[in-house]
């Protein structure tokens, strides 16, 4: 039996009727049509579905959508504001940190959460923040460089 759920995604409210067993990832992708969050493993191993739940990165594939009611959900589609890219997005574009792009949304969300609490992370802190995100294309190097290229003045 489907149940009513209200989700707050990227500042917008969505009133949905969904099956209670659906994950946040599936609901974002298939009900709200925000397909920027990717399904790479559906088991919390790859990080491609990373979204911020009340500001913290989580695997959307491991959250039941119904349990995210009343919480602030930020997806990759909400990272740019008013048509202006987030500095992280700009840095990824500028530094060549994007290849196939499948892991990119999840990695950007993990890094956004990092920078929100730690605007001047060390390389080790960057690696720890990204450790739950796999990328097969880039070898991560240019991603590290992109974060390090950001203005770190407090």
């Amino acid at each position: 039996m489907k149940i009513p759920v209200t989700l707050k995604v990227n500042g917008e409210t969505y009133d949905l009727i969904i099956a209670p067993y659906r994950t946040l990832l599936d609901v974002l992708r298939e009900e709200i049509h925000l397909t920027g969050s990717k399904k790479g493993c559906d088991a919390g191993d790859c990080g491609a579905c990373t979204v911020l739940l009340d500001g913290k990165p989580v695997n959307a594939c491991l959250v039941l959508a119904a349990t995210a009611q009343d919480r602030e959900i930020l997806t990759i589609e909400g990272l740019a504001r008013n048509g202006k890219l987030h500095p992280l997005q700009e840095a990824f574009v500028r530094e060549g940190a994007v290849q196939c792009g499948f892991c990119t949304p999840g990695i950007l969300m993990s890094l956004k959460a990092l920078l929100d609490t730690n605007p001047a992370p060390t390389l080790e802190e960057i690696k720890i923040a990204m450790a739950g995100n796999l990328c097969r294309c880039t070898g991560y190097s240019k991603m590290f460089k992109a974060v390090e290229s950001l203005d770190r003045s407090p």
């Binding site: 397909t35 969050s37 990759i76 990272l79 890219l85 997005q89 990119t104 949304p105």
Partner: peptide
């Protein structure tokens, strides 16, 4: 890259 903005925005 020509597709980088498309990719970083999801």
């Amino acid at each position: 890259r020509v597709d980088a903005v498309t990719k970083v925005t999801g």
